[in-house]
């Protein structure tokens, strides 16, 4: 069973190479369509770049995990089946799925293909994880970012499925795979369109009052010149509620769980995942370096582990919003 594998995002071939060159144990990526949840124009892999990416990563002993984590609709199902076939034929190390129907197809058609349960599958209990294990033989589950560490540990203790945790990056508002905000505003559900707040619905404009962000015409936020901006998602907007304007859903913050690495090591977390397939090779290089150094340090001497200020500063620099949080991993309530 692996321990604290570092899984990094690759939205392009250069990002994949940056991850591998800076110490990722594995990368995760998707195809250029809505079969994955980062379906943004110009991003992701076609068959040619996927082949080259697999060659590059596996040639250096690293893994390639392919995200197929959206939910197929009846009329487009063949696209998802073909994507599973492509993944199997090209020899990725695993595919990351959310839809049980697609898992069934993968098991029937490519029994040797390793399956991971996506965060979009939203399995938060060991019962749910074990169900996917029994029915589809999944080998790893990515847990939603809603559990505290003791709750995570309860899952780890009661399943033979490897557990992967989100370690760093953008935060969703804690309803993984079930958020309706984006589809409410622009008619595209992240689960089927493959993106929250897709580019075609987003408008940024510098006005005399500040920079305005709109999603399908809905004003999400207006930033004064000295304010940091966030992604154009509804959950992170400021809204007028009974005469007051504030972050009515959540503040733009980023997850950084680096200081919890010793705990994760003790619990036997198989892998930690860095968010950000939509981001550039520069980001991937910066974040991968820090996490590689931190994981090596915790494996060498867990008791002496300290989150170095230089690491934290480097990570804070690339984060969305002005705050980093431990997310749900640390909270006194359940």
């Amino acid at each position: 069973m692996p321990l604290l594998e570092l899984i990094c995002p690759a939205g392009s071939l250069p990002a994949l190479k940056a991850a591998v060159d800076h110490g990722a144990d594995g990368v995760y990526l998707g195809l250029k369509d809505n079969t994955n949840a980062r379906n943004f124009a110009g991003l992701n892999f076609d068959e040619k770049s996927l082949k080259e990416g697999i060659r590059y990563a596996q040639g250096k002993g690293r893994k390639v995990l392919m995200a197929l984590n959206t939910y197929p609709q009846p009329d487009t199902l063949p696209r998802w089946h073909k994507a599973v076939d492509t993944a199997a034929d090209l020899g990725v190390n695993a595919i990351i799925l959310a839809d049980p129907g697609l898992m069934g197809y993968a098991v029937r058609t490519h029994p040797e293909l390793r399956l991971h349960l996506s965060v979009q599958g939203s399995a938060t209990s060991y019962e749910a994880v074990n169900f996917y294990r029994e029915r589809f033989g999944i080998r790893r589950a990515v847990l939603p970012r809603v559990l505290s560490l003791p709750q995570v540990e309860n899952v780890v203790k009661n399943t033979e499925v490897e557990i992967e945790l989100f370690a760093f990056g953008g935060l969703c508002v804690m309803v993984e795979g079930r958020c309706l905000l984006s589809s409410y505003a622009c008619g595209d559900s992240p689960n089927t369109f493959g993106a929250c707040s897709p580019g075609h619905a987003v408008r940024w404009e510098q006005t005399p009052k500040g920079m305005e962000t709109r999603l399908n015409g809905v004003l999400i936020d207006r930033y004064a010149d000295n304010e940091k901006a966030g992604y154009p998602t509804l959950c992170k907007g400021r809204f007028e509620v009974q005469g007051e304007t504030y972050y009515a859903l959540e503040e733009p913050t980023s997850l950084n769980s680096l200081e919890m690495l010793p705990e994760m090591a003790r619990m036997g977390i198989a892998a930690v995942k860095i968010e950000g397939r939509q981001r550039s090779p520069a980001y991937v290089a910066q974040v991968t370096r820090v996490w590689r150094a931190a994981i090596d340090s915790v494996k060498r001497a867990p008791e002496q582990f300290k989150a170095l200020p230089a690491w934290m500063a480097e990570l804070a620099k690339v984060s969305e919003g002005s705050m980093n949080t431990l997310g749900a991993y640390y909270r006194p309530w359940k």
Binding site: A229, G230, E320
Partner: peptide, 8 residues
């Protein structure tokens, strides 16, 4: 990273 520049 362009997104970092955008946030800032």
């Amino acid at each position: 990273d362009p997104d970092t520049l955008f946030f800032n």
